[in-house]
Write a protein that binds this DNA or RNA. Structure first.
Length: 966
RNA sequence: GGGCGCAUAGCUCAGCUGGUUAGAGCGCUGUCCUCACACGACAGAGGUCGAAGGUUCGAAUCCUUCUGCGCCCACCA
């Protein structure tokens, strides 16, 4: 026993204490008697969680292969979205860990071979940028370190991040299989990525081309289309004299690269120029400009004429392609003007613009300058303005028919599986978003000019490889032909098959990080090897992630998996929302509103954090979270703990094993024995050690009610969890646990004895139901109360089953509700008349046909409403000087003698009658409506009739009471 | 410019394919340290379900329009 046990609970300092303390002193309410094995009065999450997690991990049950009866279990697989190895996890990660763990535990309890495979993502650009920032503090750049040196630093950083992330994921209680942990850049994944690249290259799905790409000058790399974000900014619109025309532009300096000008085909102003070539000179010599038409040109914007810069605008590039215009690249990868920009060569873009505009103005070539709001494209990682430019890069062709996939392209395959509902996206509105994105998908630029990542597995023979000249126009066909002196794969042969040369140089670029994470569901299972895991656990069942990653990752996985395996990567996509603060703002460092999952877990317990992330949040919707909300669920955790504590105290016997139950600590060897709780024995198939408790026999109305309610709750929670309606399942459970079990049944158990079988049964059932939501506290209670030695764990028990509701159930519920309402009515009267809580009052109940029921349950009514003498009659004289109530046709009287304020009581009754009559009137009106009678379903009409009858009864009884009052 | 989502009690949200006098938690008011829990118990107050039309015997729920927030996509040079 701890010293704290000496402290009296009624210590003055504790009186009325409302401040939240982290862990209340474990102070038993009374001297521990020999027959009162106890838990600490407050659940101590911090003491328990790590030990429990270690025990789970040690048990090996996170690995589905080790589960009892593993071979016969049907697999259930979730691949963890690998967090970026860029540091630490935030509360948004806690959200996915919670939801995925919930699904995993639920399915494990339901007898599935649950595999939740964890891992991390190397997150190429993001991680590289992060390390660049770190070394910048040492005054270093990546060029100072060189490729090898820089990568060494990155790898060290990643190792640190991974260690942190692993710890954090464990802390949140994740029951993932660490033995299968993967990393997008580890050896098996790297080999798989090379193989995937090789196959796609052979199938013509990967090609090298000179195309326009999004270039981030800061990252010095290309970006995929979806890695570009848009930002509204004020800008200037310059009207430039442009040969015989005037052209409006926000980027004057790019005009040096113009090779054409486009007008709307219907624009009469320029009719005679169409097809002509004009010559302009912006000060760097003559430029040949051809006039073309395109119906995307807005006649009303600017001058109705668009200067075309094929090398630096995706739109212009497309028009140039269609019209055979030359490409003139005036901005280089370094963000500076190229030699083709004449005297502006070498100047950074912004400077070049200023100088160019000044020069034009000096020559009177700027007609006017307007202000406008302009959306500019920026890098999603660093916010730098993205420079579109032409460059030789590697692309994935999304439109090329794939022979072994029935001639369907990546795009078509990816659209089809969702259209045919082989993949279901939740919430389904995201399907539309997905279709729209996929339909408009362009070839995916996968090469990045950064060092950290999967090096492109392409080798160039120095002896015979000849780089094509930068084509003045793109020629897609040329790009897909096999190239002399080029090898694709992990390692080139010693001798070049084309020239016999021995010097190979590997492509300097790396792959887009999403290329490897797009293959996550199958590379984690051993692909390209035909492993047992791949056969058993793929396709996975659920992919759970945030909606903001739908395109980046979810879509890519669908594409890559359909190509590599010809099957879907997952059956369902569950998209959760973003976690926001209590004011609905995004969490950010600058706002200082970041909630660290580990901080709040330390403060309130992990289970409370988990509950606050699940309950009250729904699929696809952003979730608000606050200390207050987590605090509420901490209270609930403690409630569950105390429910168990009560059940142990009232059902445990003195034959418990071991000397005592430690008030803190976890996974104690000794545990409370609920000796009279029979067990039905060891379950054969799975070979569980614990085994379920036999369903007990109900003896009283309350027993029948609570068992019926439990059945209904098991059913509804099971249905909701299957439908991934986690919040509702949690709410149902909470309402049952708190409002029905604790507030009613446990109170009744203090009056009706003989619950030694039924209470442990209910406790074990709700522990199982709660376990996926709050694994720590439920496991801890299980260990203390039910576990039969080591290795017997709640996490591998079997999910509760339920008896079907019957007509009897409805009747029982009805009867019990009547008793509840009588009790509430009595309590209400007591509260209204401010009767001291401890004081017992007398009461009379005129119950009509329900007299027998009330008589049977009289002890409960007396106990819960603190009634001394309870008179129950079917019919009888109304007591005088009594406060009254009518519930469910039962009249309740509390004779309070002089306490009763007759006038007040009369006023109250009059008001109640008025209200009841109003409702009766509306019901009567409804039933007088012939249309309602004839058109509404018979059941509805019958229901309304019953309500009317009840309401009429109520009105008449209230009137009787008013009369009786005199 | 397209598309989507959300508007229900002071706050956060439930309310499935239309059928009780619209629910919960927090907060609020009152009483209570009742022997599981003050991280608690009991009782209570509080909403014309964003607005206007429409469909229907019946609408928070379906349709139309509008208003206010929020998000996504897009090549206005």
């Amino acid at each position: 026993m701890r010293k704290a046990s000496q402290k009296s609970k009624k210590h003055p300092q504790q009186r009325g204490r409302r401040t939240i303390t982290l862990y209340k002193d474990a102070a038993p309410a009374r001297e521990p008697g020999p027959k009162a094995p106890e838990l600490a009065p407050a659940y101590e999450a911090a003491v328990v969680e790590d030990k429990i997690y270690q025990a789970w991990e040690k048990s090996g049950y996170f690995n589905p292969d080790n589960l009892p009866g593993a071979a016969k279990r049907q697999p259930f697989t979730i691949m963890m979205p690998p967090p970026n190895a860029t540091g630490t996890l935030h509360i948004g990660h806690a959200m996915f860990v919670t939801l995925e763990d919930l699904m995993t535990r639920f399915n494990r309890l339901r007898g599935r071979a649950a595999l939740w495979l964890p891992g991390t993502d190397h997150a190429a650009i993001a991680t590289g940028t992060k390390v660049e920032k770190i070394i910048a503090k040492e005054g270093l750049t990546k060029y100072d370190l060189g490729r090898e040196g820089f990568l060494k630093r990155v790898n060290e950083f990643v190792a640190g991040s991974q260690a942190t992330i692993r710890k954090q994921i464990r802390k949140i209680g994740a029951s993932c299989d660490w033995s299968r942990e993967a990393y997008t850049l580890d050896a098996p994944r790297s080999a798989a990525v090379i193989e995937l690249f090789r196959r796609m290259y052979e199938d013509g799905l990967i090609y090298r081309g000179y195309r326009i790409v999004n270039w981030c000058p800061r990252c010095e790399s290309t970006l995929a289309d979806d890695e570009v974000e848009y930002k509204e900014e004020p800008a200037k619109l310059y009207y430039m004299k442009y040969g015989p025309f005037v052209v409006a532009t926000t980027r004057p300096e790019t005009k040096l690269g113009d090779t054409g000008v486009a007008v709307h085909p219907d624009d009469k102003r320029y009719k005679k120029w169409i097809g002509q070539t004009i010559t302009v000179d912006f000060g760097i010599g003559p430029q040949e400009i051809r006039v073309i038409t395109d119906k995307s040109v807005d006649m009303n914007f600017g001058s109705g004429m668009v200067g075309l810069t094929p090398a630096h605008s995706a739109v212009d590039f497309k028009m140039a392609e269609e019209n055979g215009l030359p490409i003139k690249k005036v901005i280089g990868e370094d963000g500076k003007m190229t030699a083709l920009a004449g005297k502006y060569a070498g100047l950074p873009v912004v400077e070049a613009r200023a100088k160019f505009v000044a020069d034009l103005q000096a020559k009177g070539l700027i007609e006017k300058i307007e202000d406008l709001q302009h959306s500019i494209s920026v890098c999603y990682r660093c916010g730098t303005v993205v420079e579109p430019l032409t460059s030789r890069q590697w692309f994935v062709d999304v439109n090329r028919p794939i022979k072994q996939r029935g001639g369907r392209s990546l795009k078509r395959l990816s659209l089809e599986v969702v259209r045919k509902h082989k993949i279901e996206i939740l919430p389904d509105r995201f399907e539309k978003v997905y279709f729209h994105w996929m339909e408009n998908l362009r070839d995916w630029c996968i090469s990045r000019q950064i060092w950290f990542g999967h090096r492109i597995p392409v080798w160039y023979c120095q002896g015979c490889y000849v780089e094509e000249e930068e084509a003045s126009r793109p020629d897609m066909e040329m790009e897909t032909k096999r190239h002399i002196g080029l090898f694709v794969g992990a390692k080139p042969p010693k001798h070049c098959p084309d020239c016999g040369g021995t010097t190979w140089v590997q492509d300097a670029d790396t792959l887009d990080t999403w290329f490897s994470s797009g293959a996550w569901t199958f590379t984690t299972l051993g692909w390209p090897n035909k492993t047992k895991d791949l056969k058993r656990f793929h396709p996975t069942q659920v992919l759970e992630t945030a909606y903001d990653i739908l395109f980046f990752w979810v879509a890519r996985m669908i594409m890559m998996t359909e190509y590599a395996l010809g099957e879907v990567p997952f059956e369902k996509v569950y998209l959760h929302g973003l976690v926001r603060d209590e004011q609905g703002r995004k969490m950010s460092k600058s706002l200082g509103n970041i909630i660290d999952p580990l901080d709040v877990a330390a403060k309130y317990g992990t289970d409370a954090v988990r509950l606050s992330l699940v309950i009250g949040t729904s699929v696809g919707a952003d979730a608000k979270i606050s200390d207050e909300k987590i605090g509420y669920f901490r209270n609930f955790t403690n409630k569950l703990w105390n429910i168990s504590r009560f059940i142990i105290m009232s059902c445990g016997n003195s034959e418990r094993q071991g000397p005592s139950i430690r008030p803190s600590g976890s996974l104690v060897e000794e545990h409370v024995v609920l000796a009279r709780a029979e067990r039905s024995g060891v379950e054969g198939r799975a070979g569980f050690q614990g085994g379920p408790i036999k369903r007990p026999t109900a003896k009283t109305l309350a027993d029948r009610w609570i068992l019926g309610r439990l059945d209904a709750v098991v059913r509804s929670v099971t249905v909701d969890l299957e439908a991934m309606n986690f919040s509702r399942a949690g709410e149902t459970l909470r309402d049952f646990t708190w409002n029905e079990l604790a507030d009613w049944y446990l109170e009744i158990a203090k009056i009706e004895k003989g619950k030694e079988k039924i209470l442990p049964f209910i406790l074990l059932e709700i522990l199982k139901l709660w376990h996926p939501f709050m694994p720590f506290v439920t496991e801890e209670i299980y260990q203390r109360v039910f576990a039969k030695g080591k290795g017997d764990m709640l996490m591998i028990q079997s999910w509760p089953t339920f008896a079907k509701a019957s007509v009897g159930t409805a009747m029982i519920n009805n009867e019990f509700t009547t008793v509840q309402e009588i009790i509430t009515a009595l309590r209400n009267i007591r509260a209204e008349y401010k009767v001291e809580p401890g004081k017992r009052v007398d009461a009379t109940v005129i119950a009509g046909a329900k007299a027998a029921l009330v008589k049977r349950e009289a002890e409960i009514v007396r106990g819960l409403a603190r009634v001394e003498k309870l008179e129950i009659v079917a019919k009888g004289k109304k007591p005088e000087k009594a406060a009254t109530a009518v519930v469910r046709g039962v009249q309740v009287f509390v004779p309070l003698g002089t306490l009763v304020d007759t006038d007040a009581e009369r006023a109250r009754l009059t008001a109640e009658i008025a209200e009841a009559e109003k409702y009766r009137g509306s019901l009567a009106g409804k039933l007088a409506n012939q249309d309602f009678i004839s058109r509404a379903p018979a059941a509805v009409v019958a229901g309304e009739r019953a309500k009317l009858a009840a309401q009429e009864d109520k009105v008449s009884k209230l009137k009787d009471q008013l009369t009786a009052l005199g």
